[in-house]
Amino acid sequence: MTDDLALDRQVCFALYSASRATTAAYRTLLADLGITYPQYLVMLVLWERDGRGVQEICHALQLDTGTLSPLLKRLESAGLLERRRLGGDERRVTVVLTDAGTALRERASDIPARLARATGLGGPDLERLRDVLLAVGRNLHATEFGVP
Rank of each mutant, 00 (worst) to 15 (best):
T67W: 11
T67H: 14
L68A: 04
L68R: 00
L68D: 04
S69Y: 05
S69D: 14
P70S: 10
P70N: 04
L71R: 01
L71M: 11
L72G: 00
L72W: 02
L72I: 01
R74K: 13
R74I: 08
R74V: 06
L75I: 05
L75Y: 09
L75Q: 00
E76Y: 01
S77I: 04
A78F: 08
L81R: 00
E82V: 08
R83T: 12
L86K: 10
L86Y: 07
G87N: 12
G88N: 05
G88A: 11
D89A: 13
D89F: 06
D89H: 03
E90D: 15
R92H: 12
V93E: 13
V93N: 01
T94E: 15
T94P: 00
T94R: 09
V95E: 06
V95S: 00
V96Q: 05
V96G: 00
V96W: 10
T98S: 14
T98C: 10
T98A: 04
T98M: 09
T98H: 05
D99A: 15
D99M: 07
A100Y: 07
A100V: 02
G101S: 08
G101V: 06
G101C: 09
A103H: 07
A103D: 15
L104E: 01
L104F: 00
L104I: 02
L104A: 06
R105D: 04
R105P: 01
R105M: 12
R105T: 04
R105S: 11
E106F: 06
R107T: 10
A108I: 00
A108G: 03
A108P: 05
S109N: 07
D110A: 15
D110M: 13
I111A: 06
I111T: 09
P112W: 09
P112E: 09
P112Y: 03
P112D: 06
P112S: 03
P112L: 11
R114I: 15
R114P: 01
L115C: 01
L115I: 04
A116P: 04
A116M: 10
R117S: 14
A118H: 08
A118T: 07
T119F: 06
T119S: 13
G120I: 00
G120P: 04
L121G: 02
L121Y: 07
L121H: 05
G122C: 08
G122R: 01
G122Y: 01
P124I: 10
P124L: 14
D125H: 10
D125Y: 06
D125R: 09
D125F: 04
L126R: 07
L126G: 00
L126P: 00
E127H: 05
R128H: 10
L129W: 10
L129G: 08
L129C: 13
L129M: 15
L129D: 06
R130Q: 15
D131G: 14
D131I: 03
V132K: 01
L133F: 12
L133V: 15
L134D: 13
A135I: 03
A135R: 00
G137F: 04
R138H: 11
R138M: 12
R138N: 12
R138Y: 14
